[in-house]
Design a protein around this nucleic acid. Structure first.
Lengths: 229, 229
DNA sequence: TCAAAAGTGTTCACCGTACACCCATGG
DNA sequence: CCATGGGTGTACGGTGAACACTTTTGA
């Protein structure tokens, strides 16, 4: 009696990862094509089952690293989904996580070997089970987070231009922003360092590269419920 | 193979409820004294195990109704806690929920029969396991929610004065607010109806009673991830 | 008549938004 | 020399914050 909660039901627990990336134009999602039944051949979020000896955060990290080869990725627990019939095979509770990764430096071969593919948010197949609802919830959370904390930088390479950052925010909020107001607002955050380097690929004049100030960034972003894999 | 996820670990799943109430002075929390080991005699959140045939929301509702006798209560899923040793008896994942109830109309005998007691947030015993962390998280979420959605009314009786509402917000944010600015802001929300009645218990002059406009309220508060028990 | 709580309006600072022109350079 | 994208400042309206006096009436 003291050593066990006898007679209580145990349940299968999964984690599913909503993995966001940004290609300098659009916000993208990493999806995999299921190679097993049910719903074989359909697209879904990357997921996995929770093991006895790991926390949910660890399980989500494991799933993400397994698929992308990346470490040190921003992740955050989203919500737990528990409809009785959400998985037709067997009753499974799924805890959704979202991750923000820099599209350029993830391991493309690794994702390809998992039949994974990046999809634009606007051009996404219907997903299995309740994964579409998870994605909707993740987009809302991402908008809220980026409005209050500067986590948007997680989606960019180390050095980036003000225009890249602006396009990222435009993709997240799905609306265009004024260049001058955007610059003013970002500078007001006092988080960016302007480098002497310029990026010459996007225009003839070239545009300044920035990186963000790790120190100030960490003070502002850490709230105890996000973590790095 | 198609009918079952064989060889995957199953886990005990619990829900724990952070139940907020307001007594016109302070924000309070409903806690229970554990009458079983381990930690017998210590204070904890009200919880219960998830059953095979119910969703997490349903489990949270069941636990809440069992303790308070109340229905139609605002509840929202908070976060899932999964540290390996969070429950010393056996590995258990707990999904925390918070609830907002009107302190006046809950069933006092029912809560007493469960050795439950209301505690002011400022005058709270240390709780078992990771329940203190759950409470901290719930307070943060409550502040965020009340800042963006008018759910504060859930904690008040049907008719209330502007001063009561102000004291509630002061309790939630743990700071005093300016009477004039508060009134202006609330009126700007266009959610309250001022009644002809006055409440004469708090002053000689009496203060107007308000109730909120159910119709407009529902439009603004529903976002798909809170629910009524 | 006085103590106690209720009601009410104005000013100011700051922030978000709208908006247009010049600059540097490669072709 | 010109087309392309990059960089910058100002004016306005709305919102949040500070702030004090009058009203009512039971005791």
């Amino acid at each position: 009696m003291i050593n066990q909660y006898k007679n209580e039901d145990k349940t299968l627990l999964a984690v599913d990862c909503i993995i966001f990336g940004f290609d300098n134009e659009e916000l993208k999602l990493l999806l995999i094509k299921r190679d097993f039944e049910p719903e074989k051949g359909k697209w879904s979020l990357m997921g996995g089952f929770l093991k006895q000896n790991e926390t949910l955060n660890e399980a989500a990290s494991r799933v993400l690293t397994h698929l992308t080869g990346l470490h040190d990725v921003y992740m955050e627990q989203l919500y737990s989904f528990s409809e009785l019939d959400r998985d037709p095979v067997e009753r499974t509770i799924s805890v959704a996580y979202f991750a923000l990764i820099n599209l350029n430096d993830h391991d493309k071969e690794l994702t390809e070997s998992h039949s994974a593919k990046w999809f634009s948010l606007k051009d996404m197949p219907k997903l299995i089970f309740d994964h579409d609802a998870m994605v909707q919830h993740a987009i809302r959370r991402l908008r809220y987070r980026t409005a209050t904390q500067p986590i948007g930088f997680e989606l960019l390479p180390e050095k980036f231009t003000m225009r890249q950052l602006q396009k990222l925010y435009e993709a997240i909020y799905d609306q265009t922003l004024d260049k001058r107001n955007f610059t003013k607002k970002i500078n007001g955050m006092d988080l960016l360092l302007r480098l002497d380097e310029k990026d010459m690929t996007s225009s003839k004049k070239g545009s300044y590269l920035f990186k963000f100030d790790e120190q100030k960034y960490k003070e502002k972003v850490m709230d105890g419920f996000s973590f790095k894999v």
